[in-house]
Design a protein around this nucleic acid. Structure first.
Lengths: 362, 362
DNA sequence: TAGTTATGCTTAAACGTTTAACCAAAAAAT
DNA sequence: ATTTTTTGGTTAAACGTTTAAGCATAACTA
């Protein structure tokens, strides 16, 4: 009898609360506490399955929470706990398959551990990148995972992240000098694979449209290209090694530059797929047979490489694995409460995907 | 003299604070207050240029803030003010040029007004979409801008957003029933433009590989296609109207289905570029001349449409404008403190970009 | 000169959680 | 029967801001 009156009493309190809230204000831990006549602290503990709270109370709390449509206020708990459970991501752009795939896999791993990600794009602009860093720091992210813009040479803004004491993890476009964790592929070896493949196809004059030398990954690709040429006793000529921003447009220009040479190359290795596409367009337009007259290899394995005519050989960069590892690396840092940056490099092996554009004999 | 001692005194306090903080803990408003011997409230007001604070104090506060490398704690202010200055974005995927361009423009407008955006991807999955909504609500976003997954038919989760009292704005893939703001293009008219263009090229049997009928935009494209056929007295045959999920793979399949017909079409209008690409691949593989034997038109004006052979005619969806308008619409809602959802549709005119795949006579 | 107003702050409470420290009552141990 | 331990909580402070309300002091007004 007493039990029943109590239940009725509680139901009354509850419905009173519900009408009072009237879908207007969000229910808080305090509201739940009031309904059950216990302290907010007890509610908080109950919701977190604290061992010092009885099963009965936990059940009741969860029931009332559901009824009041309670949603924890993330801001409050983040403020109190000193962490936001947000991870900031900076990429040059999202509309490349590589970056969007990296992000997707990162998100998957991080979501599972209760983290959300804030994605920002630098559009390859250093200024935008700095703004993004400010934005992310302002939002109190618990860490930042980034791939640097092409333009970026000044690292002071990244030092700012480090000095804030939150983990910074770089992928793809990174910098040794920053002394932080890095996940990427073996660019130097990839160049070797490409040159070796082209040599096997019978190519003798291999050109390279590379990225900016000041960017580590492109520098490594260039070094790989040079060393591989040496290895196969091929001529290393200045006119065959061109620096580019690797956009489609610039790919066109640099290809034209190669075609204007007295002594044309019989193969071109382009350090990015978009630029390789530009190169291919120029070759197609001028009826230069690919791969017969000039073989072509790109870098990145963007989906369109399998769509163009002829299909474009390229390097697969293991985007999913990079995303997964970057996320796991962050989680490692997040586990320990003392932030210790370490130059821990995780270098993955890339795969050469041979397609029509470089298959001389079938 | 007194002035100088005071300055020295302050400098001492400051340096004491700096070493105390020692790059360890972040400086707060309270630290600044302590250095200057004023109240935290005064500091807060000074930083916000409150008129009740003297210029002298403001200057001093800002100077000390800079020296201590003070960064406002966004979580605290968000908690206090009851708003996070975060806008949630849900898109089916980011690696399509359309969505990434929408996002980029949205971001630009919102950043200028002090908002940051959290991007989430549904991967066309209803379940992921629901999880994303929960995530965003949990993160206390001030509003959500979304484009729905293909799978989504149940709108209860979106109702959940509305019931939370934060603005919801849909773009591209929206739903009338939700009764919220919507920004998109005129799909019905776009179909008309395409059919008209194909008729002008002399096509007589025009097929349509469309999206799911239950999605409003695809339904509109289908209706536009049907009505345009009527207008030009062309045969409307069931076998020429196919429903698809519009992936590249499905585009291949559905194209093959059309090729298997007794009476093949002489033009195919595909409601999405990726599916159109699949269709093109099948046609190229079987040496069916495009546009001579079969003309082809896609939808979306993805960059690759200008890369493939032959280049693909398509509809430009005004991504930048959509992003801009979605952001502005959110800001409109954010201005007024009372949230009032309205079915305010902003429909933009799309542009048909004619390329090789549908140019029969040049 | 008294009264009013403007200036430039301070005080204190609030936002919603979390958590260390404490405590009463019940259960177990001696 | 007394002490100890366990159970199931409570209290109060804290996280870093913002803001309404209050209050001296200075400056103007009549």
């Amino acid at each position: 009898m007493i039990f029943i009156t109590k239940v009725i009493y509680l139901l009354k309190r509850l419905s009173k609360y519900r009408t009072k809230l009237g879908n207007k204000k969000k229910a808080t831990i305090k509201d739940i506490a009031n309904v059950l006549n216990i302290s907010p602290a007890a509610v908080s503990k109950a919701l977190h399955d604290d061992s010092r709270i009885s099963e009965k109370t936990k059940k009741a709390v969860k029931q009332v929470a559901k009824n009041l449509n309670y949603q924890p206020n993330h801001l409050a708990s983040a403020l109190r706990k000193g962490k936001s459970n947000l991870v900031g991501v900076i990429v040059p752009r999202t509309n490349s398959n590589f970056f969007s795939s990296v992000i997707q896999n990162m998100e998957e791993v991080l979501n599972r551990k209760g983290y959300n990600i804030i994605i920002t794009q630098s559009n390859e602009s250093y200024k935008k990148e700095c703004a993004n860093i400010d934005t992310l720091l302002f939002t109190q992210v618990d860490g930042i995972i980034a791939s640097m813009a092409n333009e970026t040479v000044d690292l002071s803004y990244y030092e700012k992240i480090k000095s804030k004491g939150i983990p910074l993890i770089l992928f793809d476009r990174g910098e040794n000098d920053l002394n932080v964790d890095y996940i990427g592929i073996n660019d130097y070896e990839s160049s070797h694979m490409i040159v070796e493949h082209l040599v096997n196809q019978g190519c003798k004059r291999i050109a390279h449209i590379g990225g900016y030398k000041h960017t580590r990954i492109y520098n490594n690709r260039i070094r790989g290209y040079i060393d591989a040429l040496k290895k196969y006793h091929l001529p290393l000529e200045n006119e065959l090694l061109i620096e580019s921003n690797l956009t489609t447009e610039d790919g066109r220009e640099k290809m034209q530059q190669l075609l204007n040479l007295e002594n044309r190359p019989d193969a071109v290795y382009v350090a990015g797929d978009y630029a390789a596409l530009g190169a291919l367009q120029v070759l197609n337009e001028q009826n230069i047979k690919v791969p017969h007259d000039i073989a072509l290899v790109g870098f990145g394995d963007e989906p369109f490489t399998a769509m163009v005519t002829p299909t474009l050989s390229s390097i697969n960069q293991q985007s999913s694995e990079i995303g997964r590892l970057a996320a796991l690396t962050f989680l490692e840092h997040a586990k320990k409460d003392i932030v210790t940056q370490s130059l821990n490099k995780q270098i993955l092996d890339a795969k050469l995907i041979v397609r029509e554009s470089s298959k001389k004999h079938i």
